[in-house]
């Protein structure tokens, strides 16, 4: 039996897609899934979904799966993907937008165990590390 395949633009007006596009100022549909961003990503070993898959999930409006992924927190905004995307999609900005959507809720889903760090560890870490991690991983 043939399975009907329906191609529909229904997701394009999805509010999640619109929200990510607005926060990131990127045109999500420009991505044609070449995979260049994932190929050079230094954090890909530590990601459950790869950067090109993150973009694809935004295109498809997969809000809940993406907001629950580990990968959005693994990305360190190193900009390697941005500098290599043939379609000039700024992937790092898109991932930041997804993180922001989590951090802007009032659920305080912070991704940094600051309270668990010992005073010795905190004293050893330079301010540049502490401030940037809190900026990126906490609301």
């Amino acid at each position: 039996m043939m399975t009907p395949l329906r191609i529909t633009p229904a997701r394009l007006g999805d509010s999640f897609v619109a929200q990510v596009e607005q926060i990131s100022s990127q045109r999500i549909l420009a991505c044609y899934q070449c995979g260049n961003c994932s190929a050079g990503c230094p954090m890909s070993d530590h990601m459950d979904v790869l950067p090109n898959q993150i973009i694809r999930m935004v295109q498809l409006g997969m809000r809940e799966q993406l907001l629950a992924s580990k990968a959005i927190w693994a990305c360190v905004s190193c900009m390697t993907c941005n500098s290599r995307c043939p379609k000039n999609v700024r992937i790092a900005e898109v991932i930041e937008a997804v993180r922001e959507i989590v951090l802007r809720t009032n659920e305080r889903r912070d991704c940094l165990p600051i309270a668990e760090l010992s005073p010795e560890t905190l004293a050893a870490l330079p301010p540049i590390a502490l401030i940037s991690s809190m900026r990126k991983l906490t609301s």
Binding site: P42, M43, V76
Partner: peptide, 20 residues
Amino acid sequence: KTECCGAYHTVGQPELIADR
């Protein structure tokens, strides 16, 4: 020489930085 060192993940994930 332009590969990322893992940056601020050093706070919560020192092993990740050790890998980099």
